[in-house]
Simulated assay, not measured.
Amino acid sequence: MNIGIKSLLNRGVLAGWRWLDQIGKVTPGTRAAAGFGSFGAHSSIGFPSATLMNTRSIHIGSGVIVGRQVTLSVGYWPDFPGIPERGLVIGDRCVIGDRSGLVAHELIELGDDVWFGQDVFVCDASHGYQDPDLPIGNQFGDHLPVRIGSGSWVGHGAIILPGTTIGRNAVVAAGSVVRGEVEDHCVVGGAPAKLIRRLEPGVGWVGRRGDVRPVRRGYFGEEEESA
């Protein structure tokens, strides 16, 4: 192919994709946004999405950014009977990274200012295995709500399992698998995730081996030590 024609086609494809990227977003006032239980001002879901299912049970706060190819779903299939009115609740100013999945059946709730890296998976249900003659996929497990507190960060590729509660301003390291309770102002990591560091008032951020990092105030790059 002639280099000039190839360059022209390339420019056209990229320009078309940028147009689709803008037009395809789910934003307030679009028909797709109207199908959600609530969809806050200045929020958006990137194009293309992966799966948006039973959106009437999904509530999104204001200023939320949801990346591309993200799954937001409630229930096991479209129009699943008996889905909760508020199955997936995302607070204000949250960021959900590309290719993440939030799959709710009873309740997944994110507070305000919760940030996800890419490829994070959160689910409030799993599968049973006790019946040896029934395929695992047909053995639905218990529904155990998941809650992530305001201001928390969940790193790239983390998995949040059913029944997990993560406190406020907590950090989940990349690639972690989390089950159970993570307290406020803690850093956890690993598979399964374990405590790495916690805030002790008047002392600082104390590690498992007793090492202490100082408390710093302010935005990244403009911090001032205060402990």
Rank of each mutant, 00 (worst) to 15 (best):
Q118R: 11
D92F: 01
S150Q: 02
F140Q: 09
F36Y: 11
K6C: 03
G29Q: 04
F36K: 14
V172L: 03
L72E: 07
W115V: 15
P48Y: 08
S49T: 14
L9I: 14
R216W: 10
V182K: 01
D92V: 04
G137T: 09
S7Q: 10
G37V: 12
G157R: 03
T164F: 05
V188A: 07
D113E: 13
C123I: 14
I108R: 14
P84K: 05
G16K: 11
K25S: 06
A33K: 08
G175W: 10
G63S: 06
R197N: 00
F116D: 00
A41T: 12
V120W: 02
S176H: 09
R99K: 13
F36H: 12
G37C: 07
G12R: 12
R213W: 14
F121V: 13
R198A: 13
R216P: 00
V203A: 11
G67M: 07
G218R: 12
G46M: 05
V26S: 02
V146G: 14
S176F: 02
Y219N: 15
G4M: 01
Q130C: 03
S49L: 07
G16Y: 07
G63T: 00
V154K: 01
M53H: 12
R99I: 11
S57A: 15
V89W: 03
Y219D: 13
I160G: 05
F39H: 06
